[in-house]
């Protein structure tokens, strides 16, 4: 009789633990998959080709932080404009239009020698952006002293 009780108790504990794991697991799965940030890319957001080249005027208002970051960055100072990396929304540019361009291809179009050299020394990270912020790679001030790559090298 006692054995049966013990066995029954164990079963209950197992059941509760299993339910908790299933509940927790499903919540974790749901939050990781069902709620995601960017779901699809902008296919084309302007009808007129004339407007397409002048991204900055519009994006200073619609994405002001990205526009200001770019304006103050090395790419902004050197006038490496949006379409050099992102292409043109109407698809007429020499590269494909993309809100999130493939860094391994796009960055290498200009920075191939440096990328190859750094790859030999430190290996390749998945995203150039992890260390070199695309829109805020500034000419000077504290950006150089606090980049992720510097931190890793100091340690």
């Amino acid at each position: 009789m006692e054995d049966q009780n013990k066995c029954c108790k164990n079963k209950w504990v197992l059941l509760v633990v299993a339910l908790l794991i299933i509940f927790g697991g499903s919540i974790l799965f749901y939050t990781q998959t069902a709620v995601s940030g960017t779901k699809c890319e902008a296919a084309k957001h302007l009808k007129s080709g004339e407007e397409a080249g002048d991204c900055y005027t519009c994006h200073l208002k619609t994405t002001p932080k990205i526009a200001q970051d770019w304006f103050e960055s090395k790419h902004g100072v050197m006038l490496v404009k949006c379409f050099v990396c992102h292409g043109l929304p109407d698809g007429t540019g020499s590269i494909e239009y993309s809100a999130n361009p493939d860094p391994n291809y796009i960055c290498r179009r200009c920075h191939d020698p440096a990328v190859t050299m750094m790859e030999k020394k430190f290996g390749m990270r998945a995203e150039c952006n992890d260390c070199h912020k695309y829109h805020s790679n500034s000419v000077h001030h504290d950006a150089y002293s606090t980049t992720e790559s510097k931190k890793k090298m100091d340690q």
Binding site: T38, K44, L46, T62
Partner: peptide, 23 residues
């Protein structure tokens, strides 16, 4: 500019699907 951005949010003119807080 806001109108263009919100139209693409609504899928009327291209599609961003970024969600309010991502802009």
């Amino acid at each position: 500019e806001g109108k263009l951005a919100h139209e693409s949010y609504l899928g009327k003119n291209g599609c961003t699907n970024r969600g309010c807080a991502n802009c």
